[in-house]
Structure formats: C-alpha cells, structure tokens
Computed example of a mutant assay.
Amino acid sequence: MHLSIFKTKVMVAGFAAILAPINAVQASTLTYKSSVNLEKTNFEKQISLPKFDSSLGKLESILFELSGDVQGSVSLENEDAQAALVTGNLAAEISLKKPDNSLLLVALPTASVEKDLSAYDGTFDFGGTSGVKLTEISNTKKESTLLTIPDDFTPFVGGGNFNLFLEAIGNSTATGAGNLSARFETYAGANVMVSYTYAKKDEPQRRKKVPESGVPATIFIGLAATMVLTKSKIRFV
C-alpha cells in the first residue's frame, strides 16, 4: 500500500511539471521617449510621458535615462605678453526633476578644445595669431537611474501622463592664460526615456497531442514519469 501512495505522489508531480510552463510568469517592458531640441541656455522645459497602467501586471522597476547634449562655439583671445596653451570648455548642466520638483538625474556634457596662441597681437578680434573662434563643437553625456522600491512608483502609475522638468544651465569656462578673453555660444538639448518592467501571466495555451520542437524539457520529464508509472505494478507490502 505504501508503494502505491508513493507512485501517486510521483504522478502528481509529473503532471505538475507538464502544466508548470503554461502558468509561468513572464517579464515585459514598456518604453516611452520624449525630447527637447537644442536651444540657448539657460532654460527650463516641461516633459510629459505616459504613466504605467497597473492593469497590465505587477510593476517591478522603472528605468529613467537622460541623454544630455551640448553644442555651440568657443572664441578665445590670449592677451598675455607671451604665448600660452589655452583651453575652452563648452559645458552645460542638464537636470531632470520629478513631478514634485525633486532631482531625478543630472547630465554634464562638456566639449573641450585646446589651442596654442601667440602673445597678444594687438587686435581684439578672436583671430590673428593670438585668437581663435571654433564652431560646431558638441558632446553628449548619458545618465540613468533605476527605481525598484514600490513607494517610489506612485507618481508614475495610473491613468494619463506625468510631468518631468528639464533645466539646462550653461557652465562654459576658459583657462590657460593670465589675461584671457572668452566668448561662448552654448546650446543644450536632451532625450528622456522611461522604461517600465512588469510581470504578467500568459493566457492558458491549448495542449497539443504531439510535442513540437522547442517544447520545454519539463514537459518531456513529466510525460516520461507518467509513462513509467503506468507500466509499473502496484505491490502491497
């Protein structure tokens, strides 16, 4: 009798292995994007993105990505009595803030250029031998943050959209000479992306009579266990 009970348990386990893949939980991801075109700093823009619809499944994490761009020109004039190696840094501080205006991400894109300039040539024109003007300078900086605590999801879950605030401040600088004049044209822009990762259950699938290639190994294990047990004889101890 004990052997019969043992075989019954094994048969139940075999059928469980067959059915397990049908109800497996799968992770899915939804991604939305928004962008702010290049314009002169300093500015603040509002970005609107869709919230996560909780009817789709259980939200596991939210990934925010910020790609900040800086672009523009650098003009330098060495006014020293001797030659100097000067550096111009075209830079911006691009901040992304949550709906409550608290900081979410900061990107600091910087494009640097170096030039050997002679002693001041007597003409303040960002040209000649002591001056230079460099255009179409650009760079991109990417930053990201992952939210995994459910309490942090609240502003981003529900119907409709949520708003983020993008602020771009110019931080361009020049160094390399004691008497150095610099002029910058600093433009900034950004791309913002939000990705929701959530768990959902697949709809039940119809069982096929003949297993096809690619069927999970657990199905074959379950079938094998069941076939072996049906061929065994029940013995009473």
Results as ranks from 00 to 15, higher is better:
Asp53Gly: 07
Asp53Cys: 07
Ser54His: 11
Leu56Ser: 12
Lys58Tyr: 03
Lys58Trp: 07
Ser61Glu: 14
Ser61Pro: 03
Ile62Tyr: 03
Phe64Cys: 06
Glu65Val: 15
Leu66Glu: 09
Ser67Leu: 07
Ser67Thr: 15
Asp69Cys: 11
Gly72Lys: 03
Ser73Asp: 07
Ser73Cys: 14
Ser73Lys: 07
Val74Thr: 12
Val74Arg: 11
Val74Leu: 10
Glu77Gly: 07
Asn78Gly: 01
Leu85Ser: 15
Asn89Leu: 04
Ala91Phe: 10
Ala91Gln: 12
Glu93Ile: 15
Glu93Met: 14
Ile94Thr: 13
Ile94His: 06
Ser95Lys: 11
Ser95Cys: 05
Ser95Arg: 04
Leu96Asn: 01
Lys97Asn: 07
Lys97Arg: 06
Pro99Thr: 07
Asp100Ile: 02
Asn101Tyr: 14
Leu103Asn: 09
Leu104Glu: 01
Leu105Ala: 07
Val106Asp: 09
Ala107Thr: 05
Leu108Cys: 05
Leu108Val: 11
Pro109Gln: 04
Pro109Ser: 02
Thr110Pro: 00
Ala111Asp: 04
Ala111Arg: 01
Ser112Asp: 08
Val113Thr: 10
Lys115Tyr: 09
Asp116Val: 03
Asp116Phe: 09
Asp116Leu: 12
Leu117Cys: 08
Leu117Gly: 06
Ala119Asp: 11
Tyr120Ser: 11
Asp121Tyr: 02
Gly122Phe: 00
Phe124Gly: 00
Phe124Ile: 02
Phe124Ser: 03
Asp125Gln: 00
Phe126Thr: 08
Phe126Trp: 14
Gly127Leu: 06
Gly127Cys: 05
Gly128Trp: 05
Gly128Cys: 05
Ser130Cys: 08
Gly131Leu: 01
Lys133Glu: 13
Lys133Pro: 05
Thr135Ala: 14
Lys142Arg: 15
Thr145Gly: 05
Leu146His: 01
Thr148Gln: 14
Ile149Phe: 11
Asp151Glu: 12
Asp151Phe: 15
Phe153Thr: 08
Phe153Met: 04
Thr154Leu: 12
Pro155Val: 12
Phe156Glu: 05
Gly158Val: 02
Gly158Tyr: 04
Gly160Asn: 06
Asn161Ile: 00
Phe162His: 03
Asn163Arg: 03
Leu164Val: 04
Phe165Cys: 09
Ala168Trp: 00
Ala168Tyr: 00
Ala168Glu: 00
Ile169Val: 14
Gly170Ile: 11
Asn171Val: 15
Asn171His: 12
Ser172Ile: 08
Thr173Val: 11
Thr173His: 00
Thr175Val: 14
Gly176Arg: 06
Gly176His: 01
Ala177Val: 11
Ala177Phe: 09
Gly178Gln: 13
Gly178Met: 01
Leu180Tyr: 10
Phe184Ser: 07
Phe184Val: 09
Thr186Gly: 05
